[in-house]
Design a protein around this nucleic acid. Sequence first.
DNA 1: CAAATATTTAGACGCTTGTCAATATATTGC
DNA 2: GCAATATATTGACAAGCGTCTAAATATTTG
Lengths: 189, 189
Amino acid sequence: MKYDLTKKTTRGAERTLDAFSTTMFEQLSTKTFEEITVNELCEKSNYPRATFYNYFDDKYDLLNYCWYSIGRQIHLEEYAELDSEKSLYIFFDRAYDFASNHLVNIQRILKFNPIDSFLMNHFRGYLNTQMRDIFQQCPEKERYKIPYEIVADHYSNTLLLILEWSFLRMKDCSKAQAHQYLKYLLEAL
Amino acid sequence: MKYDLTKKTTRGAERTLDAFSTTMFEQLSTKTFEEITVNELCEKSNYPRATFYNYFDDKYDLLNYCWYSIGRQIHLEEYAELDSEKSLYIFFDRAYDFASNHLVNIQRILKFNPIDSFLMNHFRGYLNTQMRDIFQQCPEKERYKIPYEIVADHYSNTLLLILEWSFLRMKDCSKAQAHQYLKYLLEAL
DNA sequence: CAAATATTTAGACGCTTGTCAATATATTGC
DNA sequence: GCAATATATTGACAAGCGTCTAAATATTTG
């Protein structure tokens, strides 16, 4: 990313970042991620190409920013040092609620960018990294019979699986039901 | 894919497919997948660009063919109607042996294309699809307390996790040890 | 307010991409 | 072997990419 997100963003910068990311989401309801061009994003956002490249390295970089902005909406940063299982359910609930509130948009995007598209794989990758970080902060890494790195990945895989089942595959799965699946799959740990 | 893999390939076609896929693997030991260009693949394989596009849609398509050719090497097609767990261990063992025999190449590629690179995510995606297909062929889909689709994905996630632990993260994990991890994580089912 | 500094913009650059029509070269069947 | 057919190659095309310079605007600072 060309733009430094750690320093406080000026009003103008925020407007620009917002414009490009909402345009990206809009275009994703229209076509494949691969089909979206930087030119297109600039035209729809009413910014010159040079401005795009002032902020982002390329469209993949913008995509990362899109996930990052979703991450902030579900307060991915606020994780106390809870044990892994607690963290898992908190994370799951926040993601579940967010997805519920944006069901229509998600389904629109899935029309063109299905579960095994580049877009969704990219999103999975992002969430996985985030979860790895969260689980890394947890205490009690010693209480498992196998290496904690494996446990953390297993937690994050399983959470993602149930989230996908609930939303991407449109199974209309209640939160309670989802919790039950999670509990069943992670019983061994 | 432009070229039809179902019809029997002529000697010439096979030579071309081989040339491009081995060049791809060679280049992947040299740089990021994103950095590899079609021009480059053609120069190194000594074929004109048009020939490349006679066979493949683009470099992603070639990548898919690369995974497909690995798939044939580990006999991904030979799966009888075993139950899910049996299939899992057969698949795991074949993949484990293949990876052991190509450790050096894998590590070279990982230097430039690490675990969370586009390349490795793409590979994960491919393996996941394959495994989904295999598990779909299994009988006994009724014996689980939760939907079989979830179980199948859980199996495939877990297998991939342990394969990654063994090879991509270079933990030098023996096959017996790997089996033990698998068994532990899947105890609940 | 004006000068110093930073950011945005326009436009041009070389390069890669995927497509297409044409020509050349193999591979078939008769 | 020769004609009919398929495949490989050449070279050119428009469009996208990411970079860069220089000019135009904003923003900060004294």
